[in-house]
Nucleic acid binder design. Sequence first.
DNA 1: TCTGGGGTCCTAGGACCC
DNA 2: TCTGGGGTCCTAGGACCC
Length: 429
Amino acid sequence: MGHPGAFLNPCEELLALCDCNNFFVSCERLFRPDLEGRPVVVLSSNDGVIISRSNEAKTLGIKMGEPYFRVRAFLERRGGAVFSSNFQLYEEISARVMEVLRRSTPSIEVYSVDEAFLELPPAARERPVEWGRELRAAVLKETGIPVSVGVAPAKTAAKLAAERGKKRPETGGVFALLPGEAWDDILRDVPVEDVWGIGRQWSDFLRRRGVSTALRLRDTPDDWLEKYLGVRGLRTAWELRGIRCFPIEEYEKPQKSIHSSRSFATPVRNRESLAEAVTEFALTAGRRLRSQRSLAGCLSVSISTSRFRSPFYGAREEVVLETPTDSDIALIRAATGALSSIYKDGCDYEKAEVGLGRLSSADTVQLRLFGERDDRGSALSRAADRLNEQAGRRLLLPAALLGEKEWRPRKDRHSGVRLEDLNTLPKIS
DNA sequence: TCTGGGGTCCTAGGACCC
DNA sequence: TCTGGGGTCCTAGGACCC
């Protein structure tokens, strides 16, 4: 068997996971300090399911991903506060948190909107917990967002450490999992399904074979792991041995695919409304495509009725774009064309999606032999991006989108907070 | 009545080539 | 009835993540 990753002396280098606590709820609370101590939840798009919970909501037993309609009455009785999601706001606050983190590390990987991996500066290796506490205090002071910090030799272990910091108040939100005697005791306490990289299918499989804790996973023989869980499962076990297999990926790579989709507040029955939604999603995907300087080589459209009702109808059509493009006009044309080949009359459509794939760099275009680059459409789209960004709203949009948007997702509980409001927050000094 | 949206990586198997 | 042995590329589907 070969080596699944670079071997690093476990004691030499350390990294940290910095994880924002209950991030979306914490963002909403910045503007509503009166909600401290009350159960608060944030809902997904279309107010569908719960995607962020305050500690009080967790204590009430409300689960991640729980459909909102099932707990609405319960939450009301308990004096809970509910918010529709406001991703623009969360992304802006996230950027501010990441700025603070960036200052305290030689190398950072922004892993998600609320998490980052940081290489510990060499001087901090002797005092990881103190370093973590300083980091935590700096983020709280400058952004108002509470975070947990976990320090360990490898990412998978750092995840466990951060979780421990979050769950145990006596740690002050910071925990270092360092090779030594405590290592085994801590891993013994962690159910295997709580290990980063071990999801539902794998944890069921492992438990059936008696591998029920992180410690047992760590001590499972390599050949067995590779046979049943593949190289990813093997790397996860190695990381639990303190060996770094997933390096910090400092440089942001362009995405390989871009998707834009929404569920509709009320079912859409007519072709025009569905085409309008698909046009909207193509525009959203196109804007994100251009912002990472990519061209799309193919585009797909999916439509479906509700998964929870029968008869179900769902279909997907993919079209190869003869010349890779980032032009809204080309994307919209492809999307509406694909839609017409799968649209079926008489269905109650609940969701649609536009996906862009086979992305390539806009800076190094591969021209097809008989293809012609659509420079005008591309330039027009970029000009629209600039105008709309300067204006802070959409000044320029296709006439097809001037309609009533009967497909618009629900957002009944939006706080109404706008980006500008961020600058009105009182500063803590 | 009401059930999110956005990604990544790995692997197995088929097509195709020499 | 018999009908090789590799290698590479591509894709669909499954698993995972937040």
